[in-house]
Design a protein around this nucleic acid. Sequence first.
DNA 1: CGGCTTCTTGATCCTCTTCAAGGGTGGTGG
DNA 2: CCACCACCCTTGAAGAGGATCAAGAAGCCG
Lengths: 261, 261
Amino acid sequence: MSTAALEARSIQFIPAAASAGVRAPVAQMKTQCSTCHLRELCLPCGMNDVDLTRLDNLGFTRRKIKAGETLYREGDKFTHLYAVRFGTLKSSLILSDGREQVSGFHIAGELVGLDGVAQGRHASATMALEDTEVCAISYTALADLAISTAGMQHIVSRMMSREILREHSLMMLLGSMNAEERLAAFLLNLSQRYAARGYSDREFHLRMSRAEIGSYLGMKLETVSRAFSAFQQQGLLEVDKRHIRITDLEELKHRFDVRVH
Amino acid sequence: MSTAALEARSIQFIPAAASAGVRAPVAQMKTQCSTCHLRELCLPCGMNDVDLTRLDNLGFTRRKIKAGETLYREGDKFTHLYAVRFGTLKSSLILSDGREQVSGFHIAGELVGLDGVAQGRHASATMALEDTEVCAISYTALADLAISTAGMQHIVSRMMSREILREHSLMMLLGSMNAEERLAAFLLNLSQRYAARGYSDREFHLRMSRAEIGSYLGMKLETVSRAFSAFQQQGLLEVDKRHIRITDLEELKHRFDVRVH
DNA sequence: CGGCTTCTTGATCCTCTTCAAGGGTGGTGG
DNA sequence: CCACCACCCTTGAAGAGGATCAAGAAGCCG
């Protein structure tokens, strides 16, 4: 039945041009965490050398996803977790009235797919917003490894708990902030995540549309657009389509910090 | 700083009479999962006899929390998970402007405290809405057990993933539903959870105030009250203060199912 | 170039919030 | 035992914020 909903939506709401619904072709090369430049951010973060070697032995498969292709869909069997190597992913699910509800955006070093553990099937779909590459991590292999490796269990648990915290803060945002505060929170969150990856925290390119931002933040695309314009007029941002330059990061932080400690 | 926020809020916002801020006194008896009537719902759900025996050997401590007392507070060191034996708990955190944001309600058989795994400290506070009893599950003991026990690891992971799904659906609710739809979803969710515990799915007593429901659902208490009145007028509910009788469960479901498959 | 998508901006409408008042209830102390 | 207070809930009226509807501009691609 969720499949039916998906199909219905493909027909009605997805622009033909976007090549959505095209499943990405599978797999090329094997990758090792120990040589990955993302190892400080990604799964191996905080792991000792012994554990890291074991992780390497799993031999993760890399997989490329072109913009508009899906990594997995709602209801797909859950087999792997995915670590983003580069690019941007969007997770979303489709409401029965056909509208899309975006539940997250994922950039390099972030782990995707944890929602599948509970039921053995993915609870949402994940699609690439630009050409993207991921490491496919077999969940059974990882679980087996966790049994024999003391630290690994905790690493996985921590990843999941982090996901809980992420959703937690989004809930708070949706529950208690107005439009401009939501957008400020969103931009600051992106800014932080880019900064942690060595990119500028004041200037970046959005990979998602106004509508996708709006869905994620629980507001309409027009409202997102108006909030951008308002920030620009107030001298907080310079906005050129999807290119964002934060000109007054402190004031932007202030807007957000007022609400959540 | 979060402590400061808490103190400030205690003074300003918590009614003196409620005896809030009083930490519950610790511990009485040891409990075994194998003899617990909640074992089909709680942590041991899906566990084999061997694993269950191992779980029993951990010897969980029971702890009583009186209405208005806190189980743990935001920022407290994370040491235990808690399984609710009976009663009702509320998880929430305090925004810097002093308002409370409720993030969940927990009834018998549900697990509380998973938000602490990521950072070793609790990200929210949890308080009893009525006299409540929990099993305190040492997280380190559970983690040790998970290392030696194949199935245990997955049980914990599944618990966490379930929490992710729960927050997921709440996000969707906050992002895409109007006031009446939110309240319908809330009542249906409660109804299901009570039914799973052998209670009536059509008649129950709310343990939380309109303001707490409102905070959880992202709306004001007046709006909650109006939605209750509207449902009553439409013949869906009979409401007497906190006592709820669902007179047209199907129609109520319909309101919700329209939105999320 | 034309068609399409995305974004911006204006005008209007509607939902929910805010403000305000009144009733009911439980607990406490005189 | 009753009076009073604090709290919770309900309901009305007014107001604000965001949704919706609509039009047009800018960029992209075949």
